[in-house]
Structures are given as C-alpha cells and as structure tokens.
C-alpha cells in the first residue's frame, strides 16, 4: 500500500492506541510495507521514551495535610453578623470597647449591640429583681457559641483575663504546666483564676440584652432556683417570638416540674400562637406530671379549637392516670356539647 497523508492520522491513532481492532490490523499490514510510517512510528516511540523516562515529583502526606488545612480555613463558614465574631477582624477595637464598657457607668452598653453584651456580661448581674449570675456563665456562653473558632474563643478568653488582671480583683486558683516532660511544649501553662469582682447591668425587661441573658439563664443555669427566677422574669417581659421559643423549650425539656409549670403559665399568655398550642398538646400527651397534663388540658379547653379535640380524646382513652382520663373525658364532652350548640 502506498503512503498517503490520510495515513498520518491513522499512524497517530495507532500510536495512541485509539484504533478499533479491524482498523488496527489493517494498519499493521500497511506498516510492514511502508518505510515512511515505520520511521514516523519509531520517532514517536523515541519521543514517548523521553517523556516517560524523566524523574518526577510526588506530594508527601505532610504536604497534602498542610494544603488541606488551608482549604478547610478557606471554606470555613463566613462570620455571622454577630458582634462577637467581629473580634477576629478588629480585635483591638473590640478589646478597647470592652474595657470601656466595663469601666463606664451603667446604661452604657446599648451602643455595643446585644450579642456582644451577652458575651461580655461577665460576673454577677443584678436586675431590679435581684437576679444574680456568676462568671462561669460567660465561659459557658463562649463555649456554647458554635460560630466561634477555637482561635476566637482563645482571644476572647485572653481579653477577659487581661481585663480581669488590670482590674486587680482576681485570685489565681490553679497554675498548671502542660506536658512538663515534653521539651517542645515547655512554655505551655494553663492558669485558672477566680473572679471576685462583680459587674452590674441594670435595665428594663424590654432591654434585649437583658432578655437574652434571661433566656440563656432559663435554659442553661444549673441551679433550679435561678432558672425559675429567669422564667418568671421572662413571663413578665414584653411578648416576642424569642422569649416564646425559650419558654416552650423550658416547658418541654426542663427536668423540674415547678419550672415547667411556670413556663406553661407564661406560654398561655401567647393565645394566638400555634407553636404554644402545639407545646401544650405535647405536654398533654407526654409530660410525666399528671398535674401538668391536667393543667394543659384545661388550657387547651380554653383555647377550644377543633384541633385540640383529638388530643383530648386520645388522652381520655390512653392516659395512665385515672384522674387525667376523667378530666379529659369531661373536657371532651364539654367541647363536643359547645360544638353541637354552634
């Protein structure tokens, strides 16, 4: 077969192993007879050997990990609008404003924004009612800020510690050297300190910072008495969705029956709310306290909408407490009677 230009393409495809089996066989027959193709193929093979025979580089696992960490930092969630997160961008400014906030008289917090206030309201807090909290609450708050990176938390703690040391009213309670046998880490120490100085914030129950602090307190304080006080204060606060959510959370999750009861009474002020109604239904079906279930049935009776009937009907059959069952039956009859009158 005589060589023509179309065969150049065949040669390339043959070299790159892209010919189908029949075409490959046909080309190999041509190749045996064509000196031009043989020369070109040998040149391609020489090029191939040059390309293949060069030393190359491969990444080490350490490199991959290092670059991966960079990527993880790059894809980290954008900071939210909360002022706490701005400490990364303007930490000195934050620190100065924090110092100012602590050293100014009361009522000076407003300009700093509610979220930041939550973060920096350290120490004891007095409301007109006398609610008190302790410094652990701040650490707890910082730890609960899932948006804060470890670095931000560390900066926050440092700022707090610096301030407390400047104020001169701290007591070192523990000084620990971590891994004293590890020569690379021999400068790492951990200092625990107690804060003796009290801080005060006064404000009305319409103050959002106060409300936020109370909401946190109602959910997370260890002392039941403190949680109870927070719930009572929240029930006197102007109604809003955030407070309602907190009260519902207390009602459904607090382990203390009296606190749940207080929360339920507060929730009943939110007459038009579907969320509150659903919470009451949940109490009727699930709460461990018969007293609370009865109270919730009565609240639902007052609401009186049709969708509460199946819940009360179910309770009248299924509840394991006879008294609850009977009350549910009576309420059910009353509701059905009033419905038939309509």
């Amino acid at each position: 077969m005589k060589h023509d230009k179309k065969l150049d393409e065949m040669l390339m495809l043959y070299f790159f192993n892209e010919l189908s089996e029949p075409k490959k066989k046909a080309f190999e027959i041509h190749l045996k007879e064509c000196a031009h193709c043989q020369t070109e193929l040998s040149k391609l093979k020489i090029m191939n050997s040059k390309l293949a025979d060069t030393p190359d580089k491969v990444p080490t696992p350490e490199l991959i990990e290092k670059v991966n960490m960079k990527i993880m930092a790059a894809i980290a969630p954008e900071p939210s609008n909360s002022l706490i997160n701005k400490i990364t961008d303007s930490f000195q400014e934050f620190y100065n404003s924090m110092l100012m906030a602590f050293t100014r008289p009361q009522y000076q917090f407003a300009s700093m924004g509610a979220t930041l206030i939550i973060g920096i309201l350290i120490g004891k807090i007095w409301l007109s009612s006398g609610l008190q909290n302790d410094p652990e609450m701040l650490i707890s708050l910082i730890n609960r800020q899932s948006d804060l990176t470890a670095e931000q938390q560390s900066k926050f703690r440092n700022a707090f510690a610096n301030y407390m040391i400047q104020s001169g009213d701290v007591e070192l309670s523990e000084l620990v050297q971590e891994n004293p046998t590890d020569s690379q880490n021999d400068n790492m120490v951990m200092v625990n300190f107690k804060v003796k100085k009290d801080f005060a914030l006064k404000g009305g129950l319409d103050n959002q910072a106060i409300q936020n602090m109370l909401r946190f307190s109602a959910r997370h304080e260890k002392e039941p008495a403190r949680r109870m006080r927070a719930v009572k204060l929240l029930s006197n606060s102007p109604q809003n969705k955030d407070i309602e959510e907190t009260l519902i959370a207390v009602l459904l999750h607090d382990e203390n029956e009296s606190i749940r009861k207080e929360a339920m009474e507060a929730i009943c002020q939110y007459n038009d709310s579907e969320e509150s109604k659903d919470a009451l239904k949940t109490v009727v079906l699930n709460d461990t306290s018969a007293t609370l279930r009865i109270q919730a049935i009565n609240f639902l009776k007052e609401i009186g909408s049709e969708d509460v009937i199946p819940i009360i009907a179910l309770t009248s059959i299924r509840d394991n407490d006879e008294e609850v069952k009977n009350i549910a039956k009576n309420v059910l009859e009353e509701l059905e009677n009033s419905k038939s009158k309509e």
Binding site: D53, D56, T60, L63, K66
Partner: peptide
C-alpha cells in the same frame, strides 16, 4: 515554599 514537602522520584 512547600517544595521540601515534595519527593522527587528518580527514573
């Protein structure tokens, strides 16, 4: 800057 974290493979 990370060149030292690459390994060169001899042919």
């Amino acid at each position: 800057e990370n060149d030292y974290l690459w390994e060169t493979i001899p042919g």
